[in-house]
Amino acid sequence: MPRPLNLGKVSAASLANLLPTGTVLAAEALLPSFTNSGDCAPANKYLTLGVIVCCSLACFLSSFTDSFTGKDGRIYYGIAIWKDFWVFNDVDNEDGAGREEKHNREKLAITSIDFVHAFTSLTVFLVFAMSDSNVQQCLKINKDGVNEKALLINLPLGAWLLASLLFMLFPTTRKGIGYADTAPVKFDQGGEATARSNKESV
């Protein structure tokens, strides 16, 4: 018998982590200067496109980041790859606490849900970036028609709501970089993933 869908798994705090809030804020802080408030020279166009591309990559890849607690009690951050998990901060990789826990790290490998979250976050960010008036003027995006104006005004809100719905329908257990209010996965002696209490954070 299939399990009932639990929409309560994704709280408001979780949505703030899943949605590209930080990336949007970073872009909003940089774009007015890089676009020269819409009065773009060729250099401004390249800078604007560079910001959008870099933020898009950060937004997409952040959906694959995760963390776990090693045998030494430290929190290890990394990114999911094919059938494995690449750890960022395992300086002492001879202690068996990070890179050597291969049978555990395989549990954090890429899944199909990761791609749903990654493409959804990327779409939301691009919608917000292209809805910025300075970006529209700089990249000569046509917004003269009534339909175009209505679409550009309402599309960001619609994208945000649709993304929130998708994140609730397809929740993720990843607790990557930026998840300050949640604890990473802890592996017990048998290699099973268990919840990690906030008191164990280091």
Rank of each mutant, 00 (worst) to 15 (best):
W160S: 11
L57P: 02
T123S: 15
Q136E: 12
T172H: 06
A159N: 04
N104P: 08
L31M: 13
F64L: 11
Y179G: 02
N44F: 02
K175I: 10
L126E: 05
K102A: 11
V53R: 01
I52T: 00
N6M: 08
G73Y: 05
P42R: 04
G22T: 07
K9N: 09
A16H: 11
N134D: 14
K45H: 07
V51R: 00
V127N: 01
F167V: 07
F85E: 01
V24I: 15
L19S: 13
R99S: 12
A43F: 08
P20Q: 06
G176T: 09
D181C: 03
A195D: 11
P32T: 11
I177F: 08
S121Y: 00
F68N: 00
W160N: 08
I141P: 07
F170L: 08
D132H: 14
N93T: 03
A43E: 11
F64E: 01
H117N: 03
P20N: 07
L57N: 03
L18Q: 11
F34G: 02
F85P: 00
D84C: 03
L15D: 11
P20D: 09
G73D: 01
V127D: 05
N89K: 05
S133M: 12
K102N: 02
K149S: 15
A80H: 01
G176K: 05
I141F: 12
F64P: 05
L169E: 01
A163D: 04
A109W: 04
A43S: 10
V24L: 11
Y179K: 14
M130C: 13
H103G: 04
L5H: 12
L139Q: 12
E192N: 15
L18I: 10
S164Y: 03
Q136K: 10
M1I: 03
L122V: 07
E148D: 15
L152V: 10
L157M: 10
G70K: 00
V202N: 04
F170R: 09
L61F: 13
N17Y: 12
N134T: 12
P156I: 06
V185M: 10
T65R: 06
F125H: 04
F128S: 03
H103E: 12
